[in-house]
Simulated assay, not measured.
Amino acid sequence: MKIAVVCANGRAGRLVVKEAVERGLDVTAVVREDNQSVAPHVIKKDLYDLTKEDLAGFDVVVDAFGAWAPEDLPGHSTSLKHLCDILSGTDIRLCIVGGAGSLYVNKEHTLCVADGADFPEIFKPLASAMAKALSELRERHDVKWTYISPAGDFQAEGERTGQYILGGEELILNEKGESIISYADYAIAMVDEITKGNHIQQRISVVRK
């Protein structure tokens, strides 16, 4: 299986590459600058310069784009739109490293994590930008996308336990009542979805078991 990881030098991207390589997938890292991952192949290009030809022949493209600075937040929408446009009408799957703020906290799907009174104010602009990108993605019926939301507490330096619980649109908790997952366990879930998943045009979520 051939996969391309876009923004492979990011914290999530590097771990997805590592997990995929260790499982024997044929991995290409798409990076703007020198590759810091263990991918055997590299495309050195800005995400916005990628073309349909660059991504032809892959089975799955992973979008690991991340932006936190206020001026860069619109990139969540524009970068995802660009990838969708160049994958439109193809059989190439697009798996997106998503956010947790847009997960629903009621069965009516009218309230999200980011709507909670205890949601940190500092993260609201990011959650809003990622929710907007997801909303726009839901309108793309021409792309085989899967959006994977992490747990509320997404830990970059967290341990790799090798276990997780798969959820859907609603925030789920583990047996300890936690919404937590490490980047390493998230990478396991991402590669599982790449190799075995069939959640086409769906948002799924993961939490540490």
Results as ranks from 00 to 15, higher is better:
76 H>V: 04
48 Y>F: 14
70 P>N: 05
163 Q>S: 11
41 H>L: 14
207 V>F: 07
14 R>E: 13
94 L>H: 02
189 A>Q: 06
62 V>G: 07
47 L>N: 06
80 L>R: 07
54 D>M: 04
23 R>Q: 07
25 L>C: 09
186 Y>A: 04
21 V>R: 03
108 E>G: 01
123 F>G: 07
152 G>R: 11
201 Q>T: 08
57 G>V: 12
81 K>D: 12
27 V>L: 09
4 A>P: 08
34 D>E: 15
151 A>L: 10
88 S>M: 01
25 L>S: 05
96 I>V: 15
65 F>P: 00
94 L>Q: 02
11 R>A: 14
88 S>E: 13
169 E>C: 02
133 A>R: 08
88 S>Y: 01
38 V>H: 09
18 K>C: 01
139 E>L: 12
174 N>M: 01
66 G>H: 06
37 S>I: 09
20 A>W: 11
85 D>C: 01
166 L>N: 01
87 L>A: 04
198 N>A: 12
207 V>H: 06
20 A>H: 07
127 A>G: 13
81 K>L: 09
70 P>H: 04
125 P>A: 03
133 A>Q: 09
195 T>V: 14
196 K>H: 12
17 V>K: 01
139 E>I: 04
71 E>H: 12
5 V>R: 03
163 Q>R: 05
41 H>A: 13
87 L>Q: 01
63 D>C: 12
46 D>M: 08
116 G>R: 15
66 G>T: 07
157 E>W: 11
30 V>W: 06
46 D>F: 11
93 R>I: 10
155 Q>T: 08
186 Y>H: 06
148 I>F: 15
6 V>W: 05
154 F>T: 01
175 E>W: 00
131 A>N: 15
45 K>Q: 12
63 D>F: 03
12 A>V: 15
48 Y>L: 13
192 D>V: 11
27 V>M: 06
116 G>P: 00
36 Q>V: 15
207 V>L: 08
201 Q>N: 13
26 D>Q: 05
156 A>S: 06
104 Y>R: 07
155 Q>E: 09
199 H>A: 15
171 L>Q: 10
86 I>T: 05
86 I>P: 05
181 I>N: 02
117 A>R: 12
47 L>Q: 08
208 R>C: 13
92 I>G: 00
131 A>D: 15
184 A>H: 06
8 A>E: 04
126 L>N: 11
111 L>V: 12
136 E>F: 11
42 V>T: 15
138 R>L: 11
135 S>T: 14
10 G>L: 10
107 K>I: 12
100 A>P: 02
174 N>P: 00
191 V>I: 15
193 E>H: 10
168 G>A: 12
84 C>M: 03
